[in-house]
Simulated assay, not measured.
Amino acid sequence: MDQATYQGIALDADTALALLDWQLEMGCDVPMTDAPIDRFDLPARVAPTAPPLVLEAPSLGAATEPDDLAARLAEAGALAAAAGDLAALAAAQEGFDGIELKKGARNFCFADGNPAARVLILGEAPGDEEDRQGRPFVGRAGQMLDRMFSAIGLARDAVDAERAVYITNVLTWRPPGNRDPSPDEIAVSLPFLRRHIELAQPDLIVLMGNIACQAAIEKRGILRLRGQWVQAFGRPALPMTHPAYLLRNPAAKRDAWGDLLSLQERLESLSV
Rank of each mutant, 00 (worst) to 15 (best):
D157F: 03
D157A: 06
D160M: 05
D160H: 06
E162Q: 14
E162V: 04
V165E: 12
V165S: 11
T168M: 09
V170N: 11
L171C: 14
G177E: 10
G177L: 05
R179D: 13
D180C: 06
D180S: 14
D180Y: 04
P181M: 08
S182I: 02
D184I: 01
E185H: 01
E185R: 04
I186S: 07
I186A: 09
A187K: 04
V188A: 03
S189V: 10
L190M: 15
P191V: 14
L193Y: 07
L193V: 12
R194L: 03
R194Q: 14
R195G: 11
H196V: 00
H196L: 13
E198R: 08
L199V: 11
Q201R: 14
I205Y: 01
L207C: 05
L207W: 03
G209L: 02
G209R: 09
N210M: 01
I211R: 04
A212M: 00
A215C: 09
E218R: 04
K219H: 04
G221R: 03
G221I: 04
R226P: 01
G227P: 02
V230R: 14
A232D: 07
F233D: 10
P236Y: 07
L238T: 11
P239D: 03
M240C: 13
M240P: 01
H242K: 09
H242Q: 11
